[in-house]
Design a protein around this nucleic acid. Structure first.
Length: 191
DNA sequence: AAGCATTCCAACCGCTATAAG
DNA sequence: GCTTATAGCGGTTGGAATGCT
C-alpha cells in the first residue's frame, strides 16, 4: 500500500514552491494556445510538474493579463472595508467588485494591513479572547479605525484606479521579471 | 556592518460544492 | 442516489525583503 503510494509519488514527481520564469512561460504559452481547461490535464499536457491546483492558482493570482499589481488605493481600501462589513470573509466575492484584484491579494491585504490595526474586540461582558474573535463579524466601524474616510485627503490623489504604476515597473532586480516581460516573451514565442 | 525582528505576499493545504459518470 | 474528479474558496505558512537596534 505504502509502496504503491511511494512509487506513484515518484512517478508523478510534483514540483512545489516558487514558480520559475520558465514554468510561467510554459503556462502562459499553453493557455494562450489552448485556453484554460481542466487544470490537471492542462498541467500534464503543458509538461509542467505541477498540480492542476497549483497551475490554476498561479494563473489566476499572477499570470492572467488582467491582474493588476501594485498598491491598493485608498478607494479600493474603503471598498474592501465596506464589502467585508457586508460579506465577511468572502474574498472571492469581494474580489469581483475590484476588477483585476484577486481574492488572495485582498485577503492578504486585509490580514496584513487592516486586521492588524484592529484592537481585539472586547465583548460587553469584558471577556477578551482573540481566538474567539470571528473575523466575519468585524464591523466596518472597526475597520474604519484603519483609514478614516476623512483622512483619505491625506493620500495623494488617484486619478484613475485602473491606471497606476506597478512596483514591478521600477524593478531593477535582475532576478525578478515583470508581467510585461513575460507577456512580451509569450508574444515572441507565438509569432 | 551585523544580527534580529517584523512585514508582506506567493503558494500550499484542507475543506466544501458541483459536475460528470 | 452514489462515487469520483475537479474547481473554488478561505485559512495558514515559509521565506524573502525590509526595517530597526
Amino acid at each position: 500500500m505504502e509502496n504503491k503510494l511511494n512509487t506513484a509519488v515518484q512517478d508523478v514527481e510534483v514540483r512545489k514552491g516558487p514558480w520559475t520564469m520558465e514554468e510561467d512561460l510554459i503556462l502562459i504559452n499553453y493557455i494562450a494556445d489552448h485556453g484554460e481547461g481542466v487544470w490537471n490535464t492542462l498541467a500534464k499536457s503543458a509538461g509542467l510538474k505541477r498540480t492542476g491546483k497549483s497551475c490554476r492558482l498561479r494563473w489566476l493570482n499572477y499570470l492572467r493579463p488582467d491582474v493588476r499589481r501594485g498598491n491598493i488605493t485608498p478607494e479600493e481600501q474603503l471598498l474592501i472595508m465596506e464589502l467585508h462589513a457586508k460579506l465577511g470573509n468572502k474574498w472571492s466575492k469581494i474580489a469581483k467588485y475590484l476588477p483585476g484584484r484577486t481574492d488572495n491579494e485582498i485577503k492578504n491585504y486585509w490580514r496584513t494591513r487592516i486586521q492588524k490595526h484592529m484592537k481585539p474586540v472586547e465583548n460587553f461582558s469584558g471577556q477578551t479572547s482573540s481566538s474567539q474573535i470571528n473575523q466575519t463579524h468585524v464591523t466596518s466601524i472597526q475597520a474604519c479605525n484603519v483609514v478614516n474616510p476623512m483622512e483619505l485627503s491625506h493620500y495623494p490623489p488617484c486619478d484613475n484606479v485602473m491606471n497606476f504604476p506597478s512596483p514591478l515597473d521600477t524593478e531593477t532586480n535582475e532576478n525578478t521579471w515583470s508581467m510585461e516581460d513575460l507577456w512580451s516573451m509569450q508574444l515572441l514565442n507565438n509569432d
